[in-house]
């Protein structure tokens, strides 16, 4: 086959809601669409916060247990440290023309990225579909999500 090995679809599973993980997921999904690759995101466990209307604007960078912050763990745990690190990161992101979480979701949806919530995690956190973003394409089981990924050239990524 001529296009052997070509990536045709990225299925990304987001299980965390720390800002750096959410952005990694969104940039990868958007970058796929920009290259003509299909992309779908499955939000599970804490990843659901990134599509929860009341929570998505309050996501934080992790300052504890993150060696790349170059900050002693004890210090990272002090009150206000996460908020400080988060506001610094958001300022830097604005400088490089990075949209905030809500705008990024709008861009992803308009670009044709499918956004799915995990049924099990929704039940566990007692979230309802109406608590989530309007752009949500549906609530799926793991099996449904795998089915979405069928076909040649699909890659799966867990964040």
């Amino acid at each position: 086959m001529e296009d052997k090995g070509q990536i045709k679809k990225m299925m990304i599973i987001l299980s965390k809601a720390t800002l750096e993980n959410v952005y990694a997921c969104f940039v990868l999904a958007n970058g796929a669409r920009m290259e003509g690759i299909e992309a779908e995101i499955f939000f599970t466990f804490f990843g659901l916060e990134a599509i929860h209307n009341k929570k998505l604007e309050h996501l934080h960078v992790a300052t504890v247990g993150n060696p790349a912050m170059h900050m002693p763990t004890m210090l990272g745990g002090l009150p206000g440290m996460e908020a400080l690190a988060t506001s610094m990161m958001k300022k830097e992101m604005e400088k490089i023309d990075m949209p905030d979480v809500r705008e990024f979701i709008e861009i992803l949806s308009a670009s044709g990225v499918k956004l799915w919530a995990c049924k099990l995690a929704m039940d566990m956190f007692h979230y309802k579909p109406e608590d989530m973003i309007d752009e949500l394409d549906g609530v799926l089981t793991v099996g449904d999500f795998y089915k979405q990924g069928s076909g040649e050239g699909t890659h799966m990524l867990f964040i």
Binding site: N30, M34, D97, E106, A110
Partner: peptide
């Protein structure tokens, strides 16, 4: 140029661009 800029251009939105 970026997708975000195109979306804010007032010429075309991202959905129509795609």
């Amino acid at each position: 140029l970026s997708i975000r800029k195109i979306g804010k251009s007032g010429i075309v939105d991202i959905k129509e661009f795609y």
